[in-house]
Nucleic acid binder design. Structure first.
Lengths: 300, 300
DNA sequence: CGTTTTAATCGAAAAAAACGATAACTGACA
DNA sequence: TGTCAGTTATCGTTTTTTTCGATTAAAACG
């Protein structure tokens, strides 16, 4: 048998007041209720917490000790309630956002200051993972919302498309296409094209956009876009870089050329969450901010 | 409105089981009870803790966070119960003992090992204070029990006399009484007698035993028996030292003579506690041990 | 397209809590 | 010493809360 919080409240009030009637008043109950409650608490604990005569109430040493522990429990409980209350506010409390590595590092540095300014009470926890892991995270409840690139099977999750993001072909400076501003799939046929390691949506999108590449042995195990660019710079081949990364200045640090692609690949940057989620308004507000962040990238 | 521990229990069980019926079984309630309990908890907190479909239950991130806090609250509560249970055992848990300075330092070093051996689960907290402060401490509940010397007004407190303790007159080596083995009040008439500062029962007892001293200006502000002995050694006068202190070897370190007194002063070492106290058996057991400790002093 | 599984809901029953009144006791004061 | 004021414990009743069992609704699975 364990005591109830109510009983602990009674005990604390009594320890403060050293007077049953006053303590009862503080708890908004009658004296008899508090008296019975304390008696039951003592019976549960098996110790005398307060020795009372008709004229005075004194706490026993063990009573004091229990009171201190009870106070801690009560403040912890209060803290728990406050944690929840913060969460219940719009754009406040904790939010766990997952992002894909080909978008996160470029967009989120711009998102942070926007959030700090407009929603200072929101604590955004970030996790950078591959799309499938993010979706699993959503379904397991580990994440509240994720930023991914469609097309991709999202099951019964709810989606909010934010914007379309294309690619540029990025090639070595001395590349045969360097002077041209267009490229198409056929041109890439004989191109040593390098992509990210398996699992990245970027690779899947590229392969579906240029089916001809499927037969080629293009599976470099690059783990990041920066690695890819370094390899391009070395003249090992070309690669595809999403526009957000280019807008964010990723290619500026490398001696490479960016070549427009004729067909805009369908790559839709999208927020995803569970249908059963209760914070959809927050997610939509977050989506607006992400769009803002992306626009600030393109302008500045 | 604050949640109940019961609701937190439900939440924790659900977080562990991720299944309402199983969680309910663990809590020994029906599924409907747990379902309603969790719903009310969510309503109190204003957040969704678990998103449930007909097929699965997942905890939300805020749900997990709340669960962690709830776990802490529950273990703290469990700890509180255990604290009380320990106290409820015989000779276990905390006991706050107050002692007078003319007895404590000599008797208690012998008591400690006895306690450790016979009642290892008892934690004895000691406070050394003057008799009146000890009695106040008892009445306020700061102390459970006190070791004092009677006669002294103890009001309606309950007492347990342990043993009688007398005095010796302690004088400088070259004292006129040094060769004699007896002394009485009249002999002390012209003696420069030094006692402890006002408040010590030792002083009161001496003054009542030798009324003739009352008119003399004997109020040195000695704060400890060791100080008194040092002054005796310097030849500044004589003093009275209780037998427990002599048995404990206090005088061995000083060049002084101990002189038997003809009348055994009525000084009864006594345990005192509140009539309303619930641990009287413990106090009596403690009393037995203190007697043992004293006997070990006289033998060894 | 049933069958099974599972959470929510509903009304009744049971349990617990709270209340108001009163008793029992204490200390103070005349 | 007797009375009064103040305080906690207790008791029976009322009110509130909790729990249960049965049912419903919805989803997954074969």
């Amino acid at each position: 048998m364990i005591p109830s919080l109510r009983q602990l409240t009674f005990l604390i009030a009594l320890a403060d007041e050293l007077h049953f009637s006053n303590a009862a008043k503080r708890c908004n109950v009658t004296q008899s209720t508090l008296s019975a409650g304390l008696k039951e608490l003592e019976s549960i604990l098996g110790v005398t917490l307060a020795e009372r005569s008709k004229r005075s109430v004194i706490m026993t040493p063990i009573g004091r000790k229990i009171v201190e522990q009870a106070r801690k429990i009560m403040t912890d409980t209060q803290h728990l309630v406050e944690t929840a209350a913060l969460e219940a506010e719009a754009m406040a409390g904790d939010m766990h956002l997952g992002v894909i590595p080909t978008v996160g590092p470029f967009l989120l540095p711009r998102l942070r200051p926007l959030l700090r300014d407009e929603h200072p009470r929101l604590r955004l926890y970030l996790r950078e993972e591959l799309t499938d892991q993010l979706l699993e995270g959503l379904r397991s409840g580990r994440l509240d919302v994720a930023l991914i690139a469609l097309p991709h099977d999202v099951g019964d999750l709810e989606t909010l498309e934010l914007f379309e993001d294309g690619y540029h072909l990025v090639a070595p400076l001395d590349h045969e296409l360097a002077c041209k501003s267009l490229a198409d799939g056929t041109m890439l046929k004989n191109e040593p094209l390098m992509l990210l390691e398996r699992g990245h949506c970027l690779q899947q999108h590229a392969l579906s956009a240029f089916p001809g590449l499927l037969n080629k042995d293009v599976e470099f195990d690059a783990t990041s876009l920066a690695t890819l660019l370094a390899m391009v710079e070395e003249g090992l081949g070309s690669t595809l870089i999403p526009n957000v990364a280019i807008d964010a200045g990723l290619t500026k640090a490398h001696d490479v050329v960016e070549i427009d692609l004729p067909t805009s690949l369908p790559r839709k940057i999208t927020l995803v969450w569970r249908k059963s989620s209760t914070r959809k308004d927050d997610f939509r507000a977050l989506g607006d901010l992400i769009i803002k962040a992306r626009e600030s990238l393109r302008i500045g």
